[in-house]
Amino acid sequence: MNLINLLQSLLKWRPKKIASQSSSHVHKPVAEQEPIHQAPQSSQNQPVAPASQDETTPLVIMPTQSRFSTVTIHYIDHHRVPLRPTMTLTGEVGTVLDLPWLKFAGYYLAAITNLKQHFPEENTTIWLFYKPQLAAPVMVLHQNLEGGLLIKPQFLSGALNERYQANPLEGGANFVHHISANQTGRFTTKTQFVHFKYDPLNLKHSDAPKQRFIELLESTNTYQQPSEEALTASRLPKHAVWKIYSRAITPSGKQWFNLGSFWISPTRYQLHATNPKGSDETYQVPKFTYRYAVVKTTSLNLSASLNNSTVTFWQAPYDHPTTYQVMPKTRVVIKQVVILDNQSRWCQLKTGQWLMEGLLTLN
C-alpha cells in the first residue's frame, strides 16, 4: 500500500461528524443513569389507565353478616323438678323473643329468673318456676250412728289433683261402722266430705230379716239408737205392727230392730212376711219445695193421740202451716214418718196433713 492509500483509510476511520458533537449532548454512562419509574402492572398484566383529576374513587361497602344467639328455657316446679323437657329457641340478636308461656294442670307461674324481651348478644338461660295450685279442702266428719259429730270436723288440704287419704280416729278403727266411698281420692276445686260412722257398742249390723214386719206382743220401749242409754219418751202399744229396716246384735247376743224413726229391743214379738194389719204399700214422700231433704222414710199404719188442744198442721214439712183448735187427746192415724236432713221428724196423717212427731203420743 502506498502512502496516499494509507492516509485515505485513516481519514475514513475518523469522520468529521464525530468531532463536531456538542458537549451538551454527552451521554452518561449506563451505570450512572437514573432509574426509570414505571407504573406497576396487575397480576393479569392489564394496562392501568391514568387516573383523572376530575374523577373520585368509589367507596366499596361490604354486607354485614347477621349474628344469632340461643335462649334455653327451663320449666320447673317448687322442688326444681322439670315439668317438661328443656326448650331451646334460636333467633337473630336484637329481635323480639317470643317466650312460650306454658300452663300446667294444678300449677301456677310463681317466678321468672333472667327474663329477656330480645335475643341477647350471648347465649343465655331463662328459668320459670311453678308452684302447686291449692285445691278446695276435704272435710272429714267422724260421727256416731245417728249422724252426731264425735269431734270437730277435720280438714285435709293439698294441691289440685294431688291424692289424699282420710283415716279413722286413733284407736277407733275397730268401731267403724261405715265409711263413705271417697275415703281416698284427689283434691279438686270443690269441697269434698268424707264420713266415718262409729258404733261405740261394737254392734254387728245386718239387713232386715226376710220376714220384714214385726208384731209386738207387749208394750215396748223405743230408743234413739241401739243402746239402753238412748231411751225415748214414746212407747209402742201391744199388737202394733212395724216394718223392719235393719237390725243389730250386741256382743252379748241382744238383738235390736231399726224401725226407721227409732230402735226397739223387744222380748216378746212375732215376725211376719207381710203386714197383717194392712198392705205393704210404700208411700211416696212428696218432693218438698222447702230447702230440706228427706233422709229416711218409714211407712206404717199406727194410731196416735194429739198432745195439745192447739195443733199446727202443714201441707208439707215447713210448708203452708194452719193452726187448729182440737179436743184434747184427739185420735189420729199415722201414714208415714220422715226424717229430714236437719234431724227433724215429721208424721203424715191419713188425712194427708203433716205435723211434727213431738206433738203425738203413740199408743
Rank of each mutant, 00 (worst) to 15 (best):
L10F: 12
L11V: 13
S20Q: 14
Q21V: 05
S22Y: 04
S23V: 10
Q33R: 09
P35M: 03
I36P: 05
Q38R: 03
A39S: 11
P40E: 06
P47L: 08
A51N: 07
Q53S: 15
E55H: 15
T57W: 13
T57V: 15
P58Y: 02
F68S: 10
P82S: 03
T86L: 05
L89W: 11
G94Q: 09
G94P: 12
T95W: 10
L97I: 08
D98R: 11
W101Y: 13
W101R: 13
A105M: 09
A110S: 14
P120F: 05
P120A: 06
N123G: 05
N144E: 04
G148V: 08
L149Y: 10
R163A: 11
Q165F: 11
N167T: 15
N174W: 15
Q183C: 05
T189M: 10
K190F: 11
K190S: 13
D199G: 03
D199Y: 06
S227N: 11
L231K: 11
T232N: 06
L236T: 00
K238M: 09
V241N: 03
W242T: 01
W242A: 02
W242Q: 01
S246W: 04
I249E: 05
I249H: 02
F257E: 01
F257M: 00
L259M: 04
T274G: 04
P276F: 02
G278N: 01
G278L: 03
S279Y: 11
P286C: 00
P286H: 00
K296P: 01
A316E: 04
D319T: 14
T323Y: 05
K329T: 07
I339V: 06
D341E: 00
L349N: 04
T351D: 13
L359I: 07
L362K: 02
